[in-house]
Write a protein that binds this DNA or RNA. Structure first.
Length: 429
RNA sequence: GCGAGCGUAGCUCAGCUGGUAGAGCACUCGGUUGUGAUCCGAGUUGUCGCGGGUUCAAGCCCCGUCGUUCGCCCCA
């Protein structure tokens, strides 16, 4: 029997992160926290399929198209007629479809949160994945939507992020009408390209921005006016050249006034966002000490979300936490050593003690403890070592030999005290 | 999709100008009185990413390929 079994050497797939149990444990705690905050503001949850019909997803333009994963059966035969399916690329498009489809059954304003994986065929980098989790909240209404919701979004996000163990962050807010109004006034044609250039202000120098603008046919006077606006720290200093700019300035001022009690929420006119469907308020969130890591939470207002799916005007505002990016930034520091969720490990002394040990474990569980029972009567040191490795904080030591008392050992200190399993709680110990 | 770097035990890496692989950690067992994290002893682990070429000889050189990391594009 010399022939070795061939094994497939396991390796990670780039852009598809996975964590060890001790990190996943923290990840779930973060997700729980996010859910609790969202629900405390009255958002309800939905989940949509991993896939949408390709034509639902692919309508956003070529840049987006090239990142879409299409689904196909391996054994598909030529000529098989099936709807082409694609993995969703964000949660906004599925939401639009969902709202259009269930319009008559939804109550408006529709406030929903959604935490799911999304897929993008990008080159993975630090904080950038091919499969990642987003936590979205959106509010959608028929015909019009109060502007104060534009302020509620960052307020909620601020509350969420403040409750997580992360470095200092800053939520930056602008209103697209301001920059787009100026581009209108300057009669700039390729607005999308220009806004994308302005979007790079975080990474590039002023000179390179000017150079890029020049390459896209913006003359020096216009270019310096655009740059001045993007970098202008004071809303009052901006002169509105037209109604659009005026409107944008007023809206932004209104939103900022409502958020004035939050120091790390700032107006920043260089924020424009690449995605074209945003029409007013836009948000981005950066780590203060590492802004080039990218936005960990972005979003904005859109005039009509679902016009491709239903003949109604449905304005909305939404924001999305790039959960995977956020979590990946921290995960190396998040290993608490707590692999198991168990509070206590019940020792199994011998086969004869199995029934008793099992009863102890059940009773402890009824009292609200998470309990793992060791299932093999192995050496005591081995069972202790197991608790140590799994990060289980307490070990329950049932009577053995001639002894009659139960003891609980606290692993961190080594202390052992007598205890009654009928009313012991890890939380009190 | 484009550009650059890297690819040696489960992990982090060493391997000098080519001479058929090593450390630390991890893991397993042991150090008699049920007591883990420390200490001591013993032990297991590799087609040196894959394919081809040069050479008496390749982990080390050349070509290709795949994977991966970083930058660009775009974006959470």
């Amino acid at each position: 029997m010399s022939d070795k079994k061939k094994i497939y050497k396991p390796k990670p797939i780039s852009g598809y992160p996975e964590w060890l149990p001790q990190v996943r444990r923290v990840e779930q705690q973060w997700l729980d926290h996010i859910r609790e905050v969202f629900e405390s503001y009255g958002f309800c949850n939905i989940e949509t399929p991993a896939v949408e019909a390709l034509e639902v997803i692919a309508a956003k333009g070529e840049d987006v198209d090239k990142e879409i994963y299409v689904l196909e059966r391996l054994q598909k035969e030529e000529g098989d007629k099936e709807a082409r399916l694609a993995l969703h690329f964000d949660q906004t498009v599925p939401l639009a479809r969902y709202v259009g489809q269930h319009f008559n059954d939804l109550v408006f304003p529709f406030k929903r949160y959604q935490t799911q994986k999304v897929w993008r065929g990008e080159r993975p980098q630090a904080g950038r994945f091919r499969e990642f989790t987003q936590c979205d909240i959106d509010v959608i209404n028929v015909d019009n939507l109060p502007l104060s919701l534009d302020a509620e979004m960052p307020k909620i996000i601020h509350e969420v992020l403040s409750g997580l163990d992360i470095p200092p962050f800053e939520i930056r807010i602008s209103n697209r009408k301001i920059l787009l109004g100026l581009l209108d006034y300057l009669e700039v044609r390729n607005k999308t390209e220009v806004t994308r250039i302005i979007d790079k202000i975080e990474k590039l120098s002023e000179d390179s921005i000017e150079q890029l603008l020049k390459e896209h046919g913006i003359d020096e006077a216009d270019s310096s006016e655009i740059l001045w606006l993007a970098l202008c720290p004071d809303l009052d200093a901006v002169f509105p050249h037209n109604e659009m700019m005026q409107e944008g300035l007023e809206e932004l001022q209104f939103v900022m006034d409502q958020l004035s009690h939050l120091p790390n929420v700032v107006a920043d006119l260089s924020i424009v966002r690449g995605l074209d469907y945003y029409t007013g308020t836009v948000y981005e969130t950066m780590f203060v000490d590492d802004p080039s890591y990218g936005s960990i939470c972005s979003g904005g207002r859109y005039d009509d979300l679902a016009s491709s799916y239903i003949n109604k005007k449905l304005p909305g505002v939404g924001i999305s936490i790039g959960f995977s990016r956020l979590f990946a930034k921290m995960h190396t520091q998040l290993d608490t050593g707590r692999i198991s969720p168990a509070d206590v490990l019940v020792i199994l002394n011998s086969e004869d003690d199995r029934a008793a040990a099992s009863e102890i474990a059940d009773t402890l569980r009824k009292n609200g403890n998470a309990v793992e029972l060791y299932h093999a009567p192995q050496k005591f040191s081995k069972q202790l070592s197991y608790a140590e490795k799994k990060g289980i904080p307490f070990v329950w030591m049932p009577p053995f030999g001639d002894t009659v008392e139960h003891k609980v050992k606290t692993m961190a200190t080594g202390d052992q005290v007598e205890a009654d399993y009928k009313d012991w709680k890890a939380a009190d110990a």
